[in-house]
Protein backbone atom coordinates (compact mmCIF):
# COMPACT_ATOMS: atom_id res chain seq x y z
CA UNK A 1 0.00 0.00 0.00
CA UNK A 2 1.32 3.46 -0.89
CA UNK A 3 -0.44 6.82 -0.64
CA UNK A 4 0.95 7.92 -4.02
CA UNK A 5 -0.04 4.81 -5.97
CA UNK A 6 3.52 3.47 -6.47
CA UNK A 7 5.25 1.06 -4.11
CA UNK A 8 8.58 1.09 -5.95
CA UNK A 9 10.31 3.21 -8.58
CA UNK A 10 10.73 0.23 -10.91
CA UNK A 11 8.67 2.06 -13.50
CA UNK A 12 8.99 3.58 -16.96
CA UNK A 13 8.84 7.32 -16.16
CA UNK A 14 7.18 7.95 -19.51
CA UNK A 15 4.12 6.28 -18.08
CA UNK A 16 4.10 8.07 -14.71
CA UNK A 17 1.83 11.04 -14.13
CA UNK A 18 0.69 12.42 -10.78
CA UNK A 19 2.65 11.21 -7.76
CA UNK A 20 1.16 13.21 -4.89
CA UNK A 21 -0.62 11.39 -2.04
CA UNK A 22 -4.36 10.75 -1.94
CA UNK A 23 -5.05 11.21 -5.62
CA UNK A 24 -8.77 11.44 -6.24
CA UNK A 25 -9.39 13.79 -3.33
CA UNK A 26 -8.44 16.96 -5.24
CA UNK A 27 -11.92 18.49 -5.14
CA UNK A 28 -12.18 17.89 -1.41
CA UNK A 29 -8.72 19.45 -0.90
CA UNK A 30 -9.85 22.46 -2.92
CA UNK A 31 -12.93 22.84 -0.72
CA UNK A 32 -10.78 22.75 2.41
CA UNK A 33 -8.37 25.21 0.85
CA UNK A 34 -11.12 27.69 -0.04
CA UNK A 35 -12.61 27.43 3.46
CA UNK A 36 -9.16 28.14 4.92
CA UNK A 37 -8.75 31.19 2.67
CA UNK A 38 -12.23 32.68 3.26
CA UNK A 39 -12.03 31.89 6.98
CA UNK A 40 -8.73 33.74 7.19
CA UNK A 41 -10.30 36.88 5.73
CA UNK A 42 -13.20 36.63 8.16
CA UNK A 43 -10.95 36.23 11.23
CA UNK A 44 -8.65 39.06 10.14
CA UNK A 45 -11.54 41.39 9.28
CA UNK A 46 -13.19 40.96 12.68
CA UNK A 47 -9.91 41.33 14.59
CA UNK A 48 -8.86 44.43 12.69
CA UNK A 49 -12.22 46.13 13.24
CA UNK A 50 -11.99 45.46 16.97
CA UNK A 51 -8.37 46.60 17.12
CA UNK A 52 -9.09 49.88 15.30
CA UNK A 53 -12.08 50.56 17.53
CA UNK A 54 -9.90 50.12 20.64
CA UNK A 55 -7.02 52.06 19.13
CA UNK A 56 -9.12 55.14 18.34
CA UNK A 57 -9.73 55.55 22.07
CA UNK A 58 -6.26 54.59 23.22
CA UNK A 59 -4.22 57.59 22.11
CA UNK A 60 -2.63 59.60 24.91
CA UNK A 61 -2.36 63.13 23.42
CA UNK A 62 1.16 63.68 24.78
CA UNK A 63 2.42 60.40 23.39
CA UNK A 64 0.72 61.03 20.06
CA UNK A 65 2.39 64.44 19.90
CA UNK A 66 5.74 62.74 20.54
CA UNK A 67 5.07 60.25 17.75
CA UNK A 68 4.15 63.04 15.33
CA UNK A 69 7.40 64.86 16.15
CA UNK A 70 9.35 61.67 15.53
CA UNK A 71 8.01 61.57 11.94
Amino acid sequence: MSTIGYESWAVDLAEVGAVYPFQGSEVLMTIFGVIFWVGWHRIQFVREGKHLEEARRAGDPDKVREILEKY
Binding site: L52, A55, R56, A58, G59, V64, I67, L68
Partner: peptide, 8 residues
Protein backbone atom coordinates in the same frame (compact mmCIF):
# COMPACT_ATOMS: atom_id res chain seq x y z
CA UNK B 1 -8.93 53.68 9.24
CA UNK B 2 -10.39 56.10 11.84
CA UNK B 3 -8.89 59.60 11.89
CA UNK B 4 -7.60 59.20 15.45
CA UNK B 5 -5.68 56.08 14.46
CA UNK B 6 -4.28 57.78 11.38
CA UNK B 7 -2.83 60.53 13.57
CA UNK B 8 -1.42 58.30 16.27
Amino acid sequence: IPEEVELQ
